[in-house]
Amino acid sequence: MMNARMTRRRMIGISAAAAGMVLLPPRGGAAAEAVTWQGEAMGAQASLIIHHPDRDKAERLVEATVAEVRRLERIFSLYREDSDLTLLNGQGFLVMPSPEMVDILRQSRAAWELTGGAFDPTVQPLWDLYRRHFSTPGASEAGPPSEAVAERVTRVGLDRIACSPDRIDLSVPGSALTLNGIAQGYVTDRVVDLLKAGGIERSMVDMGESRAIGSAPGNRPWRIGISDPLDKASILTVLDVEDRAVATSSPFGFCFDREGNFSHIIDPRSGATPQRHASVTVVAGQAALADALSTAFNLMDADAIAASVRMQAGVEAHVLSLRGEWTKFTAWDGRRL
């Protein structure tokens, strides 16, 4: 039985994550001394490891990173009453939106097109429906009525949002956005840009999703362990990454119901919560893209995942089946066991 209180998001850091990844010491020994930070970003556990010969400069970069994360939270957070996203959802429009809001919606649209609509941040009305249903005492274990689900689906569709540097409009009454499937990756990418501008050539950044800058100490790859979604203490496979982002999503990360039949990964096209795969890990150049695709691929079959991966150079997907079998998809051959 799944724990409905298990965290929805995941972290890479010194300790294991609920859904899926662990930063391991590089091969050949422990990492060199570094400036590290652990905290919270966008509602997720976050960590930062900076290798720099000037410790004072490294600490100043950590302070700048935390300030940037807090600034972006005031734009993207679904739970802050003063965020731009909360204002947009509440009034249905946003005048003179921040450049970051316009940019994240542009990247969301690209992921929406790449996945045939499987990634869609306008899924929030369906999330609210499931949350309210299962938080009601005596709620049916069969889930919300099919008619209610169908009605909420009519509010979903990223193609019906008007977005420009001057204004964003949610044209469908009752529609709303959640950026939880991409914002952590987006924030991670912004932090990477900040650190690179500060001269950092070697770092592991995790602001809810992770991205490596350069190689680990000793010119070795950073090693990321992918955990069993049902047993976070068990590492199923290890990925070596350099200058790449990694994101993992699993339907077992959070479920609305105690029996685990209704996952947080909701198909925006049907309103259903299918469990096609045990987990999906995506490696990409950008954390925002890896974040969005790891969610969407959980809703797609093998052929659809292969087709999407072939359309995006530098992307690979590691899919764990419900039977415990791994399949790797790459942009070069589409599918490789």
Score class of each variant (00 low, 15 high):
309 V>T: 10
107 Q>L: 13
236 L>T: 08
47 S>E: 15
308 S>V: 11
84 D>Y: 04
328 K>I: 04
205 V>G: 05
114 L>F: 05
29 G>Q: 03
265 I>N: 04
277 H>V: 10
19 A>E: 01
3 N>P: 02
168 I>T: 07
82 D>T: 00
181 G>E: 06
284 A>N: 02
63 E>T: 08
228 D>S: 12
36 T>G: 08
322 L>P: 06
303 D>K: 15
113 E>D: 12
249 S>K: 04
299 L>H: 14
264 H>R: 14
205 V>D: 09
49 I>E: 13
100 E>C: 14
198 G>T: 11
299 L>R: 05
275 Q>W: 00
127 W>C: 03
193 D>M: 02
333 D>P: 13
298 N>G: 01
77 S>I: 01
239 L>R: 09
115 T>E: 11
270 S>T: 04
45 Q>N: 10
166 D>W: 00
44 A>R: 05
183 A>R: 08
275 Q>A: 07
60 R>D: 15
142 A>L: 06
228 D>G: 09
304 A>L: 09
78 L>S: 11
133 H>R: 01
159 D>Q: 03
263 S>H: 03
312 Q>L: 15
112 W>K: 10
226 I>Q: 06
81 E>M: 13
58 A>K: 12
61 L>N: 08
27 R>S: 11
6 M>P: 00
302 A>M: 10
62 V>N: 00
320 L>K: 05
80 R>N: 05
173 P>E: 12
123 V>L: 10
317 A>T: 12
15 S>D: 15
325 E>Q: 02
83 S>Q: 00
144 P>W: 00
136 T>M: 03
251 P>Y: 03
109 R>I: 07
3 N>D: 00
8 R>G: 07
175 S>Y: 04
337 L>Q: 13
62 V>T: 07
106 R>C: 07
181 G>V: 04
113 E>N: 13
269 R>Q: 15
33 E>P: 13
139 A>M: 00
316 E>D: 14
242 E>P: 11
331 A>S: 15
106 R>T: 11
12 I>P: 07
67 A>D: 15
255 C>M: 03
84 D>N: 01
334 G>R: 03
287 A>N: 08
204 M>D: 13
16 A>S: 10
237 T>S: 14
188 T>I: 06
304 A>H: 07
165 P>K: 03
57 K>P: 07
69 V>N: 05
102 V>H: 12
171 S>H: 03
170 L>V: 01
294 S>N: 03
161 I>T: 09
214 G>N: 05
51 H>A: 09
57 K>R: 13
49 I>L: 14
135 S>E: 06
84 D>C: 11
186 Y>P: 01
27 R>N: 12
263 S>M: 04
217 P>R: 06
300 M>V: 04
185 G>R: 11
246 V>C: 14
9 R>D: 00
89 N>R: 12
240 D>Y: 04
76 F>Y: 12
30 A>Q: 14
118 A>N: 14
17 A>D: 06
89 N>M: 00
14 I>R: 15
190 R>L: 02
231 D>M: 02
122 T>G: 13
268 P>Q: 09
303 D>H: 07
139 A>C: 04
241 V>D: 07
111 A>N: 09
205 V>N: 11
132 R>N: 10
